[in-house]
Amino acid sequence: VDYIVEYDYDAQHDDELTIRKGDIIKNVKKLEEEGWLEGELNGKRGMFPDNFVKEIK
């Protein structure tokens, strides 16, 4: 499942992704941690907030 970024987010920890509006995040999975998703961007896998992105259908 792929998501498109709607709002910029700067990573706060090493396991998070810095994302920018218009980025496409690939292979996204829901995490047990409420409010977070995990996906791949530019060869890096990491977490990001689910309210900054929208699923591409």
Rank of each mutant, 00 (worst) to 15 (best):
Y3I: 02
V5F: 02
P49R: 15
E6H: 12
G43V: 02
N27P: 00
A11S: 12
Q12H: 11
V1Q: 13
K57M: 15
I25E: 00
I56W: 02
Y3W: 11
Q12I: 12
E38Y: 12
G35D: 05
E55R: 10
E40H: 07
I24R: 10
E6T: 14
V28H: 01
D2G: 09
L37F: 10
F48M: 09
I56M: 04
P49W: 09
I19W: 01
V5R: 01
G35T: 06
P49E: 03
I4P: 01
D50N: 12
L37P: 02
E16V: 03
E40M: 09
A11D: 01
V5A: 07
I24T: 05
G39F: 00
D14F: 14
I4L: 07
P49K: 14
A11R: 11
E16I: 02
W36Q: 03
V53S: 05
G43Q: 07
L31S: 09
R45H: 05
K44S: 08
E38R: 11
F48N: 01
L31A: 13
I24S: 03
Y3R: 04
K57V: 15
L31Q: 09
D10I: 14
E34T: 10
L37G: 04
E55A: 07
T18A: 05
D2R: 15
V53L: 03
A11V: 02
Y7Q: 13
E38V: 08
M47L: 09
K44E: 07
H13Y: 12
D14T: 12
E32M: 10
V5Y: 02
Y7S: 11
F52Q: 02
K44P: 01
E32R: 09
F52D: 03
R45M: 04
G46H: 01
Y7G: 13
D15Q: 13
Y3T: 03
I4Q: 08
F52I: 07
G22T: 04
E38K: 08
K29G: 11
K26W: 07
G39Y: 00
G46K: 03
G35K: 05
G46M: 01
F52N: 03
L41G: 02
K26V: 12
L37A: 07
M47D: 02
D2F: 15
W36H: 03
Y3E: 01
D10T: 12
Y9L: 04
K29W: 15
H13V: 13
D2P: 11
P49A: 11
Y9M: 03
H13D: 10
V53T: 06
F48D: 00
N42E: 08
I24A: 02
K54D: 06
